[in-house]
Amino acid sequence: MTLAQDTAPTARTAWTEVCPLARLRPEEGVAALLPGGVQVAVFRTHDGQVYALDNLDPFSRANILSRGIVGDLRGVPVVASPMHKQHFDLRTGACLEDDAVVVATFPVRVEGGTISVGRP
């Protein structure tokens, strides 16, 4: 699978298993807990890509991005915050409504039917 540049894993990446790929329906998100209490939102898009963003919605400061609706805007795969509907590019974490806002992205790998998320 392809990954965005800034989420590319390195040799130091520590991987955490999240769930079987089959657990995640297309265009759905789930939340996962990484070591140290870090919360990530993991999304699967229609074309089979898997992405991980920080679960924290920077606008509402609640850990909810995993519960947003997944779709696309002008071809960009996005999740909409369930709180106030700002959209985040799943590939880069960039907010479509506010240039100054970006959420962290995490490297993802799918091996043996299992999704893992890395901490860079």
């Binding site: 919360q39 920077p58 606008f59 400061r61 850990n63 960039a94 100054a100 806002v101 970006v102």
Partner: peptide
Amino acid sequence: GSPDPAVSFREERGQRVPVLLGTPEVASR
């Protein structure tokens, strides 16, 4: 079974109300 560790409450007029995670602060590119 693990609840969201960031969710916490305080008491107001005898009931639990949410403690908010401070003022919104967002990362810049």
